[in-house]
């Protein structure tokens, strides 16, 4: 109990420090810029955007027949047939057959921007839970500011939320880095979890959807490729509105002309 109290105080202290920093460097606008950069870096899944009609396939179903086709992601050649090995949308572009998954846990890829929570602190870094099959490791050397080796909690404490880039995926373990623009600890605000396969929908074409939500709610939003979204607004009400809008998109991800639907959603809320 005592420990909790102590930690709660810690949060407040950090909160104050943050405001102080902002005053000193006036980095509000700067922060916005970094946010933009962050989005450009994320590699969007173009697949949802095209208007092509795709069919839902189930595992074991034949997607294409004949030796003309090549098996791509989540497909496998079985004799003369290309068989789906995962539930999703079948995509045949030219000779390549692949499956766009609709569900499933997040598998990190190099260069992905992810949001995670500090679950453990070792002598040289932090263990971060990023909603993937494996825990990720953020080495102290990869922190985006100087960290005293004797007290790593100074930078990140248990339960802190951090946005980081996947630096490498080795045979065992995922390494993260925060040494790039816009990465680092996320203070205050709230996080929500969505299906990571719906992330491209939430971002939209060249970030159109997320920019719409940002504009309408005046919130700072960071979307992790692992399906964790961080929202921070001027008040709780706008944060909840942003959350509602994101969940609206996730639930209607099959609908065509979603941007207009979301615009209507905001118009109704006002």
């Amino acid at each position: 109990m005592e420990r909790r109290d102590f930690r709660d105080r810690g949060y407040r202290d950090r909160g104050n420090r943050r405001e102080f920093r902002e005053e000193r460097f006036g980095d509000r606008g700067d922060r916005e810029n970094r946010e933009e950069m962050r989005e450009e870096k994320e590699d969007y899944d173009n697949n949802f955007r095209e208007e092509k009609k795709r069919e839902i396939v189930i595992p074991g179903e034949t997607v294409a027949t004949g030796s003309d086709f090549l098996p791509g992601d989540f497909t496998q050649r079985e004799g003369n047939e290309i068989v789906a090995t995962r539930f999703g949308l079948a995509d045949i572009s030219g000779r390549l057959v692949k499956i766009i998954p609709l569900a499933g846990v997040y598998m990190p890829r190099k260069g992905n921007i992810v949001i995670g929570k500090v679950t453990d602190i070792t002598f040289n870094g932090w263990i971060i839970d990023i909603n993937a099959p494996y825990n990720a490791f953020l080495p102290a050397a990869e922190a985006n500011r100087f960290v005293n080796k004797n007290d790593l909690t100074e930078f990140l404490d248990f339960g802190d939320i951090v946005v980081a880039k996947v630096d490498s995926i080795k045979r065992r373990g995922i390494d993260l880095t925060t040494r790039a623009g816009g990465l680092g600890q996320l203070e205050e605000g709230m996080t929500i979890d969505i299906n990571s396969n719906k992330v491209p929908r939430v971002i939209g074409k060249e970030g159109s959807m997320i920019n719409l939500i940002k504009k309408e709610t005046m919130c700072n939003i960071v979307v992790g490729q692992n399906g964790i979204i961080w929202i921070r607004g001027n008040d709780v009400k706008s944060e909840l509105l942003a959350k509602e809008a994101i969940l609206f998109i996730v639930n209607k991800s099959f609908v065509e002309g979603l941007t207009e639907k979301v615009e209507k959603f905001f118009a109704e809320k006002k």
């Binding site: 074991g60 539930f87 609709l102 846990v105």
Partner: peptide, 11 residues
């Protein structure tokens, strides 16, 4: 299992 997106070669 299929709904969870687990790789499977058959149902």
């Amino acid at each position: 299992l299929a709904h969870a997106g687990v790789p499977m070669i058959d149902m």
